[in-house]
Nucleic acid binder design. Structure first.
Lengths: 246, 246
DNA sequence: CTATGCATCTTTACGATGTAAAGATAGCGA
DNA sequence: TCGCTATCTTTACATCGTAAAGATGCATAG
């Protein structure tokens, strides 16, 4: 339903001067959009911003990054194609706000995973495993957060959410190394430890989502999953690096 | 010059039925494109396919991934916007062939870097350093190879080039571990070693290109470069993993 | 209670893109 | 010399992002 942008656009280019009054009264407009806005007021949605973000997340997980367009989101929400502009400015704005939501979900998932861990070894494994698990459960969202070039990190919501994600990682690493970070400064060893951990998990996730680890998984003993491969990587890494055996 | 696709298109939508003979003779056409094709034959370019790929690489490094469009490449090459279709089918085709070229450049860069290395430690560092160096020198190309969703790996040229890249990595890892890979099968430890190395370098590169390591670099001692950070990561990794000290 | 202003949403319009389809051109073999 | 076919151009169209102007309804001042 509503295949062509609630009609209008790209139809006749020659006729129809820009300034024809035309007076489409409320009745004709309401008759044209029967299904949208079930019991809500048709005009003045009230919570269009949140509705658009939820619609965007649905579109993203259904049609992928390529399908996430302003017009598709507007269609999904049942409003005109230009409605999102007023709330987000442009596509970058919408995408950035959605990515901020993604980072918050992501942070929450990792925090809850760390809470349920008991032993130090388990704690060291819980975070990266939750990282990859989130990306597998929300591939569209993860791609939006880490693959899209149209993100505006100057937006406070996105900047803050992404910053919080980084802070969680840095804290986890410094806790594992048992040397707290003093202020903002980092030694080269600390920076290398953080960058190594982040690079490893992020790289693994990207390769996995892109299907580039299939080659390796096929060569492994039959039935080996990506999670088991990740665990093997993590265990050998942690074993070579933790202060003492658990 | 030639700002609007050699003219035509998007002009009048209503009039002009599809089948008007219209007979634009050769004279009018030649007069319309004066500057393109300097001394070559105007029609039947002869080596359009290669010219388009070179044009595409120029456009990619100049305008980034977002600027790499079929029409922009055609403009850059001085041909009509539909000319690439005949040689590559669609945008995925062109992009895939260009990515294959990128993989070949990439493989050559890493091979030559390994050749110049002498000590085992140097050999272990040369490949990942060349990896990151290539990505920094050709960010557009690397993004095309590892960020684009529009790649068709069923194309033989791309499949082969990417496969060769993976084989080089796997060989380097098995050489470092001093246990050759038997046939196609991998133990879980071998798979983990390969996936770990690839994930680390790929993740580092992506984060670096996306500017996400800026935060870490700023906190490091003043003047620390990305290369130094990478080296610190690699050295600690290799030190924990190589059979004996060098 | 009415009028005015403003935030919200819709219409209309335009340039750009990918792609399909049909026309034009040239080289090459029968 | 005459088609045949590969190569390139024209034309057309749906879709997208975005700008600009109109329509609508809520809030608030008078």
């Amino acid at each position: 339903m509503a295949k062509s942008d609630t009609r209008g656009d790209t139809k006749g280019g020659t006729a129809r001067r820009p300034r024809s009054p035309q007076r489409t009264s409320q009745a004709s407009r309401a008759a044209r959009r029967p299904a949208a806005a079930k019991t809500e007021t048709p005009y003045h949605h009230g919570a269009l911003r949140e509705a658009l973000l939820q619609a965007a997340e649905r579109v993203l997980e259904r049609d992928g990054l390529a399908g996430l367009t302003l017009r598709a989101v507007a269609r999904e929400a049942g409003v005109s194609h230009a409605a999102p502009t007023h709330h987000f400015g442009d596509l970058t704005g919408l995408v950035s706000e959605l990515a901020a939501i993604g980072f918050r979900q992501f942070n929450a998932a990792m925090a809850s995973a760390c809470d349920t861990a008991t032993s130090p070894l388990e704690r060291a494994l819980a975070r990266p495993k939750a990282y990859v698990a989130y990306a597998q459960a929300h591939p569209g969202m993860y791609g939006l957060m880490f693959r899209t070039e149209r993100l505006d990190y100057s937006r406070p919501s996105l900047h803050e959410a992404a910053e919080s994600s980084f802070a969680g990682l840095a804290n986890a690493i410094s806790a594992m190394r048992q040397e707290p970070i003093s202020g903002r400064a980092l030694t080269i060893e600390q920076g290398a430890a953080i960058a190594r951990a982040w690079s490893m998990v992020h790289g693994f996730t990207m390769l996995l989502l892109d299907g580039r680890l299939e080659d390796i998984l096929e060569r492994l003993p039959a039935g080996t999953t990506a999670e088991q491969l990740l665990e093997a990587i993590l265990k050998s890494t942690v074993a070579a690096r933790m202060p003492s055996g658990t």
